[in-house]
Write a protein that binds this DNA or RNA. Sequence first.
DNA 1: GGACGTAATGTAAGCGCATACATGCTGGCC
DNA 2: GGCCAGCATGTATGCGCTTACATTACGTCC
Lengths: 343, 343
Amino acid sequence: MRESKTSRPPRAIDVAAAAGVSTATVSRAFNAPEKVLPEVRDKIFAVAAELGWLPNAAGAALASRRTWLAGVLIPTLDHDVFAAQVNALQARLSASGITVLIGCSNYDLDEAAEQVKVMLARGIEALAVVGELQRPELFEMISARGVPYVVMYSHSPQSAHPCVGFDNQAAFSKLTRYLLDLGHRNFAVIHQPSLDNDRVLARLSGIRAALASEGLALRPQHVFEGPATFEFGRESLRKCIDSAGPRPTAIICGNDTLAIGALIEARAMGMDVPGSLSITGFDDLPIAEFTSPPLTTMRVDNVAIGKAAADYLLTRLSQQAIVPREAFEAELIVRGSTGPTGE
Amino acid sequence: MRESKTSRPPRAIDVAAAAGVSTATVSRAFNAPEKVLPEVRDKIFAVAAELGWLPNAAGAALASRRTWLAGVLIPTLDHDVFAAQVNALQARLSASGITVLIGCSNYDLDEAAEQVKVMLARGIEALAVVGELQRPELFEMISARGVPYVVMYSHSPQSAHPCVGFDNQAAFSKLTRYLLDLGHRNFAVIHQPSLDNDRVLARLSGIRAALASEGLALRPQHVFEGPATFEFGRESLRKCIDSAGPRPTAIICGNDTLAIGALIEARAMGMDVPGSLSITGFDDLPIAEFTSPPLTTMRVDNVAIGKAAADYLLTRLSQQAIVPREAFEAELIVRGSTGPTGE
DNA sequence: GGACGTAATGTAAGCGCATACATGCTGGCC
DNA sequence: GGCCAGCATGTATGCGCTTACATTACGTCC
C-alpha cells in the first residue's frame, strides 16, 4: 500500500513485474483465477495489495467491452418512494458487481433525456427508469444501442415497455370505489403537479373512471394541484371547505404528505374526521399509522419493486429470454381517516 | 440516430469519415470547439447527431486521464438527511459535468472501505464521505492516490480531515443546556445505534458533557439505544416511564423519528407534554412542525452541506489552494414539546 | 519412447479516444 | 515579392487493460 502522492497509481504491468509474470497473468489472476496456478495467483494478490493496485476500470472497459455499469433514472432522490427503490435496486446490482449510476431529472423530461445520454456515453449496460412518459428519443437512444431497460414504479396494461410496478389508475379506482361504497358522492382531490407525470395522470384518471361508473364527476373547484407538501395539503383543504356549493365529504389526496396536511388542517378547523369528512392518502409513510385519526392510505412495496427491476435487468443481461413483466398491486390500508358519510 | 440493434455503437472514426475530417478534429469539435472552424464544427455535430454518436467515456478517460467522476459515500439513501445531501451535491457536481457515484455502506465500515475501493478503480477524482469514523485504509487509499476528499455532515474541531458539516457534540450540548436552563435535572436519552457511528457518539458525549457541567449524569436505565423508528421511540418511552426510580422530566431523542414516536406514546399514555414531560428531536423533519404539540428539535441545512461539500471538492479539483473547512451550526427550533419542569 | 493433448503462461494487438507534434495554408508586413 | 506568424487540420502514439493466439512444458498412452 506504499505509493508516493506524486507518482501515478500503479498499473498492471507494475504488478506483473513485481510478481515476475506477464500482465496477461495478472489479468487472469483477477478475472479468471482458476486459470492461474494457486501459488502464482497468491503471489500476484500479495504484490497487488502491497502496491495498492486497483485495476483501472476505463482500461478494462475498453479492452473487454464490458463496463459493469447500469443506470437508474428517477425524478429526485428527495422522495422516500424513489430513494427506497433506488436503494434496493442498487443493493441488488451491486451484489452482482454492477455499479449503478443514478440520474435525477427533477421531473424535467429534457433533463431526463440528457441524463440518459450521459449514462450511455459512460457505457451503461442496463437502465431502469421511473415513469414511461419520456421523450421518445430517450427510448430510441437506448434501443439503438440494444441496452435492456425497464420502466419502474408505474405499470399500465397497455404499456409498450417492460415494466415493474403497479397500475396507478387501477389503484386509485380501487380507492375511489372504496369511498363510493362508503356512500360518498361528493369528492375533492388534492394532488401533485401532473405535468409530464404519467403516475399522477393515471391516478387522476383512475379516480374519474370510478366516479364516472356511478355517473359522478369532479367539480373543477374541488381539484387542487400543487406541490406535494404538508402546507399545500392544508391550504387546499381550507379552500375546499370554504368554497361555496356542496361540500365534499371525501378528499382523495395524491399522496400521504398532502393527506396529512389536509388532515391537520381539518382537525385545526374543528372538523370531525371521519365523521363529516373522509381523507385518504397514498404511499403509507411510516407516520401514516400515527396521525389522528390514523390515515387510510395505500401501500406499495417499493423495496420489492427496486429488487424486481434489478432482477429483471440482471436476467436480461445474462440471457436473451424475455422475462414477463411484473405487476405489483397497491394495497388498501383502511385506518381511521375514512368512514361512511354522515348523512 | 439510425443504427441497427446488432451493430456496435458508432465511434469517433465513423463520425470523422462521414464528416470528411480526422478523428482529431471530431475530438476537438467537442472538447475545444473554438479550435474548429464553425462550419466544420456544425457539420461534425450534425453528423454525430445523425449517427447517434456519443463519445465513449472509457476511451476518453484512458486517453485524457480524466474521468470526470466523483464519489459520495453515505450510510444509506433511505434517510432524508443523506438523500438531501446527496441530491444537492449531485446537482452541483453534475452542473460541472461531473458524474457522481453513490456508495452506500449500510453503516458497515468494511463495506464502506470496499465501496471506496470500487470507486477508486472506477477513477473517481474526488470523494465526499459521511462520517469520519472509517477504517484507516479508507483514507490511506484515497490519500495514496492524491484524491481530494471531504468529510460531510459531521465536523469536529479536532478532526484530522477537511470537513463540511456541524459539530454534533456542540449541537447536543446546546440542546441539553436549553433543557437544563428550563430547570430539568432528570434526563433520558433515546438514540440510534452508536456502533461505528461518530455522529451518534458525539451527540451522546455532547449530552453528557452538558449534564456533567451541572454535576449531573445519565442513569443507565434511562438510556435507550435501538433502531431509529417510531416504534422504538414509543417502546422506549413506555419503558422509561414505567421504570422504577426517579422519572425523567426531559427526554432527548437522537432524531425526530424517535422523538415523534416518544411523543405519540406519551400522549397515548395520557401524559402532559410539555407539562410533565419535555421531548426533543433532531433533524426538523417537515412533520415536526405539525405534531401535537409541535416538536422542539434542531435543524441542519443538509442541502447547504451537500452544496458546500461539492463546492469544496470543485475548488480542490481546480486548484491546489487549501480551502478552509466549513462549519455549519445546528439551529435550535423551540416548539411546544418542551417547557419548564412542572415542579 | 515418441506423438499428442492439456495446462500454464507469454506475446502482442487493439479497444476508442485525446493530444503532441507535424503539416499546409493564408495573409500581413517590410 | 518573399518571409514568417498563426491558424486549421491531420498524423500517429499511447492511455491500461483483456484476450486470441502462440509457446512451452509436462504427462499420458499405445
